[in-house]
Design a protein around this nucleic acid. Structure first.
Length: 119
DNA sequence: ATTCTAACA
DNA sequence: TGTTAGTA
């Protein structure tokens, strides 16, 4: 199938699909015309990519992580133990980000509650 | 009608 | 990422 059909079947824009290829996440074949040709397996591949992106992984990390992931019809499970620890570390990063945002929100609250009263 | 690359009021 | 221009 060409990019248009893959886009329809995955709900991902053609733009994003081409971007995934640039990042090495997909390696579609090329017709002599230059058109990309994807296989049925790519539909599942895109879903896996979306799951990993939604988990906050960068495209570079996804490229390395995908090879040691088990895809039990939609449910991704980390195989390599190194990957598990890497994901746990990623989770810690998220916790840090949450803390920083909470601090930022607290600073904003101080400003909001200090609203000037009419004189 | 579709897809491709490259580029950005 | 959207979008658009100019092609094949």
């Amino acid at each position: 199938m060409r990019i248009g059909e893959l886009a329809r079947r995955t709900g991902i824009t053609e733009r994003a699909l081409r971007y995934y290829e640039e990042q090495g996440l997909l390696r579609p074949e090329r017709r002599p015309s230059g058109y990309r040709v994807y296989g049925d397996a790519d539909v599942a591949a895109v879903r896996r990519i979306r799951i990993l992106l939604a988990a906050g992984l960068s495209t570079a990390q996804i490229t390395q992580v995908l090879p040691c992931m088990l895809d039990d019809d939609g449910l991704l499970a980390p195989l390599c133990p190194e990957l598990v620890s890497a994901l746990v570390e990623h989770r810690a990063k998220i916790d840090e980000a949450i803390d920083e945002l909470a601090a930022t929100r607290a600073n904003l609250d101080v400003i909001i509650s200090a609203e000037a009263r009419p004189t």
